[in-house]
């Protein structure tokens, strides 16, 4: 009899504890009403390449699908693993490795129009999601390298195949300190390594 009573008491205590914990957790979480809608917050951490490699028409549709829970977080190649990590943190889910059927990641590149070949058909302008291509009918077109996100959407429509992707130029100013290695080596002067 007492055993049953004790067990009941224990269960009651556990239930109470759980309730307290849950309510305190809710209190600690930032009020969701003041935040922008979830889709907007997801969109804010997507890379905005607008390339459609995730299978959606752009970053915002992907974000909306994620917000509705209709897609997995591991489908955006431009975002990289870092992007998946950020999405996982925002959506309170586990990190996932890249989906097996997702296109491979590529280093950032910008489009370049071969200006001698361009026939001025304006098809690439219509394809570019960020209006990074300038030109008008029957005039030579060109890409604003600063605005180009490297989405490659302009490659397919070009009837004369004059658009190619070039790696985003690496300036001397883009130099970064290398990753610190844990074993510190003595310097060998004279040997140009």
């Amino acid at each position: 009899m007492t055993l049953v009573l004790r067990l009941l008491l224990l269960l009651l205590a556990i239930w109470l504890l759980g309730k307290v914990l849950r309510s305190s957790a809710q209190k600690l979480r930032p009020a969701t009403s003041t935040l922008p809608p979830l889709a907007e917050r997801i969109d804010a951490i997507l890379p905005q390449t607008q390339c459609g490699q995730c299978g959606h028409a752009g970053c915002l549709p992907y974000a909306q699908a994620l917000a509705r829970g209709e897609d997995s977080i591991n489908r955006c190649p431009p975002g990289g693993e870092d992007g998946i990590r950020k999405l996982a943190a925002l959506l309170h889910t586990d990190y996932l490795p890249f989906a097996a059927d997702a296109p491979p990641q590529k280093p950032k590149a910008v489009a370049l129009i071969d200006e001698a070949t361009c026939i001025g058909c304006t098809l690439c302008i219509q394809a570019c999601p960020v209006d990074a291509i300038l030109g008008s009918a029957k005039q030579m077109h060109t890409v604003l390298a600063d605005e180009c996100t490297g989405c490659e959407l302009c490659l397919a429509p070009c009837p004369v195949d004059c658009i190619s992707m070039r790696p985003a130029t690496s300036q001397p100013a883009d130099w970064r300190w290398g990753y610190p290695v844990i074993a510190i080596k003595a310097v060998k002067p004279g040997s140009s390594s």
Binding site: L46, P47, Q48, Q50, V130, E147, R176
Partner: peptide, 23 residues
């Protein structure tokens, strides 16, 4: 290294914001 990564991330965020606006 970390400060530079932070700087880079900031630049990327700026570029992404610009792309979002344009899109």
């Amino acid at each position: 290294l970390a400060s530079q990564q932070l700087l880079l991330a900031e630049q990327q965020q700026c570029a992404a914001d610009a792309a979002r606006q344009r899109h």
